[in-house]
Simulated scan of single mutants.
Amino acid sequence: MPVWQWLLDAAGALLVLVLFYGIGLIVRRRLLSRNGGTFELSYRVRQEHAGRGWLLGLGRYSGESLQWFRYFSLWPGPKRVLQRSEVTYLDSRAPEGSEQMSLYPEHVVLSCSTPDGLIELAMSPASLMGFQSWLESGPPGTDWTRGPRQ
């Protein structure tokens, strides 16, 4: 078999894999969104360099937790789970510098405190209002204005 036929077969196989990957992403997104309560949510995984380390994703409320799913992953489970009782909203700001290119237009960056340390999330202003409402609507007896745990 000539080399050009091997290359053609390899290119065809690669095209089929890319097609299946795309279909898998679409099916996964539909399955995650079928019960509602999902929104665009970016998560900053690395904070060593200013404006870098952002991953695009999808947020979903599930009872007392906020689940974060990476957009370009086929894994069915959440990559990160934030418990309502462990999250404290600190501040929000507009994206700065290279963050404007990494995030969706008009998204705001918010800082939250968790037992694992400070985290940064980015979401639309409407989703931020929903996030704040979700934090405030905790079970009776919780104090959503509490400071970071010591």
Rank of each mutant, 00 (worst) to 15 (best):
P2Y: 00
V3Y: 11
W6A: 15
W6V: 15
L8M: 11
D9Q: 10
G12M: 10
L14R: 06
L17K: 09
V18F: 09
L19N: 09
Y21P: 03
G22Y: 07
L25C: 09
L25D: 06
R29A: 09
S33N: 13
N35M: 08
L41K: 00
S42K: 00
R46K: 07
W54M: 03
S62F: 01
E64A: 14
S65M: 10
S65C: 11
S65Q: 15
L66Q: 01
L66F: 06
W68G: 04
F69V: 01
R70L: 03
F72L: 06
S73Y: 06
P78G: 04
K79A: 07
S85D: 14
E86S: 13
V87L: 13
T88N: 05
T88K: 07
S92Y: 14
A94I: 11
A94P: 01
P95D: 03
P95E: 04
S98V: 15
E99L: 02
E106K: 08
E106G: 01
V109C: 02
L110D: 02
S113Q: 09
T114G: 05
D116G: 12
D116P: 00
G117P: 06
L121G: 05
M123V: 06
G130Y: 06
Q132L: 12
S133N: 13
L135I: 10
T145E: 12
T145Y: 08
R149D: 11
